[in-house]
Nucleic acid binder design. Structure first.
Ligand code: SF4
Ligand code: SF4
Lengths: 159, 159
DNA sequence: TCAAATAGCACGAAATCCGTGCGGATTGCT
DNA sequence: AGCAATCCGCACGGATTTCGTGCTATTTGA
């Protein structure tokens, strides 16, 4: 199916929120999962799990303890949609054989030697992938977040 | 997940086979599911199910009874990957809300009003969709089929 | 009449994804 | 020291989707 998972959507929302926070004065400060979850009706616990994955992928930096949380490790225009998807869904695939390639049991399809669509589909995937690599977090954020979510905490840091 | 379903892969293989058959002399003749399944290690029964869907979508024409089967309804360069995916997976979506849009229980996400990534993601989907619309069955077929499977019956097409 | 083939529907098995429940480790504040 | 807030790691049950198959009916040519 050509559809992002909920995890990826939650991750993107969180990243946009982080980007927003960084751009509205609170640069460098860590934003907690709780704060993010308070802004959107998202399963807090799952959101935390997603942030952890993003931390492992080194897209965000984490800080433990009180006043801990997450913050972007790079500038919003240096983080691409492709990276986020790769971090949360693990596989830039489009055909089943590509997904299988990354596991011990390779070649589970059985018709790879004679598959007439394997190679062409790979090219299509490259196209999709390129599209995502050209979509930065900044371009995701500036369309709505800075305009809609911004006003809620516009002064400098939400009291 | 960004991956085509097995059904779609099977459908594409079948369509490529049909295109191949049409281009190598047997234009107009109907090709049975049995014949296609004999060329690739694919669950015959499921392949039949897929072909039925393609027939409903009017991408192929079917003929019942003896000597029946399927044949392309248009030229290979007039059938796009986007159409095939739409016929077999039903939904050109990328975010959950788009998938939900097509069912009675709309707005199951709950955060659509404040979602910061909804609109931007729609644009990404448009890009992917455009990519698939620009990928014709001919471009899928000519890369491998005409070169690899072609030799088996190459009489006069394929200079 | 018979055999081959598609049409239609529905079902159980398998895989994937969603969401949550633990317990543990850090950190700052009192 | 004690405590509360926060991230970390793992693992599980339930929901959803997809895969593959079974059965019957209908059509068509020999
Ligand atoms: S070999 Fe062909 S059919 Fe098998 S998974 Fe790869 S693309 Fe799909
Ligand atoms: S509203 Fe946002 S989070 Fe909800 S499904 Fe649509 S894109 Fe995903």
């Amino acid at each position: 199916m050509i559809q992002l998972t909920k995890r990826t959507e939650y991750g993107l929302i969180a990243l946009v929120h982080l980007a927003d926070a960084a751009l509205t004065g609170r640069d460098g400060a860590f934003v907690s999962v709780r704060e993010i979850a308070e802004h959107y009706p998202v399963p807090k616990r799952l959101l935390a799990e997603v942030l952890k994955d993003l931390a492992r992928a080194e897209l965000v930096e984490s800080a433990r303890g009180k006043d801990g949380g997450y913050t972007l490790r790079r500038q919003p225009d240096q983080i691409t949609l492709a990276e986020v998807v790769a971090a949360l869904e693990g596989r830039p695939s489009i055909s089943s054989c590509e997904t299988a390639e990354r596991s011990p049991s390779s070649s589970n399809c059985g018709l790879e030697p004679v598959c007439p669509i394997r190679s062409p589909l790979h090219r299509v995937r490259e196209g999709i992938w390129g599209l995502m690599e050209r979509t930065t977090l900044r371009s995701l954020a500036q369309t709505s977040s800075l305009v809609q979510a911004g006003p809620l905490l516009q002064p400098k840091a939400l009291t």
